[in-house]
């Protein structure tokens, strides 16, 4: 649970929790491949933003930006990118 308290309604403890950033730890350290955006190829279609299962891609004036603190490097953004503007670079 992200919170140190248990949510209780009408006397019953419920398996609910309030979502908060980093509740599951800094998952960026799990990465073996890092998605890197080539902005000259990005057409701002936002497919990567839509498909990211961890919501670590946000919209930005430059197009999209990846939060590497939490990106697990699953490569779905790389897979859906229609212009191959995302490349997967091995982590050292």
């Amino acid at each position: 649970m992200s919170s140190s308290y248990l949510i209780r309604i009408k006397g019953f403890t419920l398996p609910l929790s309030v979502a908060s950033e980093g509740a599951m730890g800094r998952t960026g350290s799990w990465r073996t491949f890092k998605p890197v955006i080539n902005y000259s190829k990005c057409i701002k279609c936002y497919l990567c933003w839509l498909h990211c299962p961890f919501s670590v891609i946000s919209k930005d004036s430059s197009g999209v930006v990846i939060d590497y603190e939490y990106c697990k490097g699953c490569g779905i953004c790389y897979d859906v990118c229609p212009t191959k503007a995302i490349v997967m670079v091995p982590e050292r």
């Binding site: 649970m1 992200s2 949510i7 398996p15 609910l16 929790s17 309030v18 979502a19 509740a23 599951m24």
Partner: peptide, 8 residues
């Protein structure tokens, strides 16, 4: 918003 069935 809340999440349901998170790890406990």
């Amino acid at each position: 918003r809340f999440s349901l069935g998170n790890i406990a």
